[in-house]
Amino acid sequence: MTTMITAIAIDDEPKAIKVIEHHASKIEHLQLVAHFYNADDALQFLRQNPIDFIFLDINMPNVSGMEMLNKLQHQPLIVFTTAYSEYALESYNFNAVDYLLKPFELDRFQLAIKKVEERLESTKYNSSYFFIKDGFKTIKIAFEDILHIKGSGNYLDIVTDGKSFSPRMTFTEIVEKLPASQFVRVHQSYVINISKIDKIENNHVSIGEHKIPVGNRYKTPFLKRLGLG
């Protein structure tokens, strides 16, 4: 089974967003979870939501695509989209996966997605676990063992099967570590492991004995992520 990959699109031109949405709808294992017309709104989303990659326009007013990337601590993979070929060389300073020159057709778009998949596959070995500090101990946690994570100020509750950890770490910091293919945000304070979901009912997700609330602003992208929206 092909792994679902997630993306957002950032472009100040509505027509350009519509082209990306149209092409994305033709690829079953690609989920365009959100789109933005300016860098500031996209930055706010990216700091709190894990995704695999960004379709990013370079030439935008106020904050350009490249200026936006310099503001991110953790960068998802990047597919640049632009009408100006002179940006191509500079774009590769950001280790871009691909560079789509507008207007681009579906076959060229599909090639970019294939390159994203190859890059994701090549970095998989870095995405199976992470470490947290617990007093004087350093503990390894496998992503596949996590049920859900709750943020509370400068601390987290990381819940696994039979165990819970409360490291001093912000919600933004943990979101940046999570592989977007496995995790989805369902609430201002909760991220869940998609593979652990048992049931969705009355604005709650059941994972074993845990009931996690689904916030109104996260409900539509969450259901869309599961193919239910």
Results as ranks from 00 to 15, higher is better:
residue 215 G to D: 12
residue 79 V to K: 07
residue 70 N to L: 14
residue 194 I to K: 02
residue 96 A to L: 05
residue 173 E to D: 15
residue 214 V to N: 09
residue 68 M to S: 02
residue 179 P to F: 01
residue 190 Y to I: 00
residue 33 V to C: 01
residue 157 D to H: 11
residue 2 T to Q: 07
residue 193 N to M: 02
residue 64 S to D: 14
residue 76 P to H: 02
residue 202 N to K: 12
residue 194 I to Y: 03
residue 205 V to P: 01
residue 135 G to M: 06
residue 205 V to C: 09
residue 120 L to C: 10
residue 34 A to R: 12
residue 119 R to A: 11
residue 81 T to W: 00
residue 79 V to G: 10
residue 37 Y to S: 10
residue 36 F to A: 01
residue 42 A to R: 04
residue 47 R to D: 15
residue 116 V to W: 00
residue 144 E to S: 14
residue 121 E to L: 12
residue 24 A to R: 05
residue 106 L to K: 08
residue 180 A to C: 03
residue 14 P to E: 07
residue 92 Y to E: 06
residue 211 K to I: 05
residue 12 D to W: 08
residue 173 E to M: 09
residue 9 A to F: 07
residue 210 H to W: 07
residue 12 D to G: 06
residue 158 I to L: 14
residue 5 I to T: 02
residue 74 H to W: 04
residue 98 D to Q: 07
residue 197 I to H: 08
residue 66 M to H: 09
residue 151 G to V: 05
residue 71 K to S: 14
residue 141 I to C: 10
residue 130 F to Q: 04
residue 142 A to K: 10
residue 53 F to S: 02
residue 39 A to N: 13
residue 51 I to P: 00
residue 4 M to D: 00
residue 112 A to I: 03
residue 201 E to P: 01
residue 19 V to S: 08
residue 54 I to F: 05
residue 34 A to Y: 03
residue 189 S to A: 15
residue 223 L to D: 03
residue 143 F to P: 02
residue 42 A to G: 11
residue 207 I to W: 06
residue 199 K to A: 14
residue 54 I to V: 13
residue 134 D to Q: 13
residue 122 S to K: 14
residue 76 P to E: 01
residue 125 Y to P: 00
residue 91 S to T: 11
residue 108 R to S: 12
residue 15 K to A: 11
residue 218 Y to A: 06
residue 112 A to F: 06
residue 76 P to R: 02
residue 97 V to P: 07
residue 14 P to K: 05
residue 44 Q to I: 10
residue 188 Q to T: 11
residue 78 I to T: 12
residue 189 S to C: 08
residue 4 M to L: 11
residue 130 F to V: 06
residue 156 L to Y: 10
residue 121 E to S: 08
residue 65 G to E: 08
residue 106 L to G: 04
residue 78 I to R: 04
residue 161 D to Y: 06
residue 173 E to Y: 07
residue 25 S to R: 00
residue 162 G to F: 06
residue 204 H to Y: 13
residue 96 A to E: 09
residue 41 D to L: 04
residue 111 L to H: 13
residue 129 Y to K: 15
residue 106 L to N: 10
residue 71 K to P: 00
residue 229 G to L: 09
residue 5 I to R: 00
residue 15 K to G: 02
residue 77 L to I: 00
residue 161 D to N: 15
residue 210 H to F: 08
residue 196 K to D: 06
residue 205 V to A: 08
residue 203 N to M: 13
residue 63 V to A: 14
residue 183 F to D: 05
residue 190 Y to T: 06
residue 113 I to S: 10
residue 133 K to H: 08
residue 9 A to P: 05
residue 131 F to Y: 15
residue 225 R to L: 09
residue 178 L to K: 02
residue 55 F to V: 10
residue 25 S to K: 00
residue 41 D to H: 09
residue 56 L to H: 08
residue 2 T to G: 01
residue 220 T to K: 09
residue 58 I to D: 12
residue 131 F to T: 11
residue 74 H to Y: 13
residue 19 V to N: 07
residue 196 K to I: 00
residue 26 K to F: 02
residue 9 A to G: 13
residue 81 T to Y: 04
residue 93 N to G: 15
residue 161 D to E: 15
residue 142 A to R: 04
residue 194 I to A: 00
residue 4 M to C: 00
